[in-house]
Write a protein that binds this DNA or RNA. Structure first.
Length: 246
DNA sequence: CCGGTTGTTCAGCG
DNA sequence: GCGCTGAACAACCG
């Protein structure tokens, strides 16, 4: 459930609990659960891969990591990190990291970094990328301070769409190519959202977990690249390696 | 049993 | 103190 669009879908599903009071809070999360009881949920928000449950004086920040899941009313056979019971149902979170935010959210989050947010600012993303010309394209897309909400699927699909080799240096991309990269991360986010909602996301993967290039019909390369050595799927033929940074 | 994964954090280096 | 890297952690599948 981790990438940004999935958080947006969860937020929509969570709307039934908006305005409701927590009757009971349980779970393994190392937070003050009792402090949540009798508090009213005033809003649900998302920032990239963060799912935010807003109460009048505090916010719960829920991060799903790689394996996080959530359910409404139908629990899994596992210990939840958090479960919130309301009058109209129970919200369960599993394998998540939960933190309490006491500060004003606008002071904590720059909403314009979140690719799913209305305030998403492509010019700011461009500027940040240009400031770090030696960054590899495969790392740039995963940088949550540039593209909050983008993950490994984004990385592979966007680099394929834009015909950029994952080991290209950001500073070597022609200006139009850089703009295209930024734009496509945003476009893919909303394709991801649409396809995930329709439960057809995987069908639309062009290279992620695939063996053959859909354009060239030759075998794709699968390698673990970049800082985090995350798996990359790419076509050596149609994805151009830009590497001269002046 | 092992290896692998839509991710992040932190200890331990140089 | 910095930036970088690898380990650690999480749950489940093949």
């Amino acid at each position: 459930m981790p990438e940004g669009p999935s958080m947006v879908i969860l937020k929509e599903e969570a709307e039934i609990f908006k305005g409701k009071k927590v009757l009971e809070a349980k779970g393994t999360a190392k937070i003050d659960l009792e402090a949540l009881e009798n508090r009213q949920v005033v809003d649900f928000k998302t920032w990239g891969k963060h799912f935010l449950i807003c109460f009048p004086e505090l916010t719960l920040r829920i991060h799903f990591g790689l394996f996080g899941k959530s359910r409404i009313d139908e629990p899994f056979d596992a210990k939840p990190s958090l479960q919130l019971r309301f009058t109209n149902g129970t919200f369960y979170f599993y394998t998540t990291t939960i933190k309490v935010i006491e500060e004003d959210l606008d002071a904590v989050y720059d909403w314009s970094i979140d690719i799913m947010n209305k305030a998403w600012d492509p010019a700011a993303a461009r500027k940040k990328l240009k400031a770090k010309p030696d960054t590899l394209a495969c790392d740039a897309i995963l940088d949550q301070q540039v593209f909050s909400g983008a993950g490994n699927i984004f990385k592979n699909e966007v680099l394929f769409r834009t015909c950029i080799h994952p080991l290209s240096k950001i500073g070597a991309l022609p200006p139009r190519k850089l703009s295209e990269l930024v734009k496509q991360v945003h476009l893919y986010a909303f394709d991801f959202l649409k396809w995930k909602k329709a439960d057809v996301l995987k069908q639309h993967w062009q290279v992620h977990t695939k063996n053959t290039c859909p354009r060239c019909d030759i075998p794709l390369v699968k390698k673990h690249l970049g800082k985090g050595k995350r798996r990359s799927f790419y076509c050596e033929n149609c994805q151009v390696l830009y590497e001269n940074v002046d």
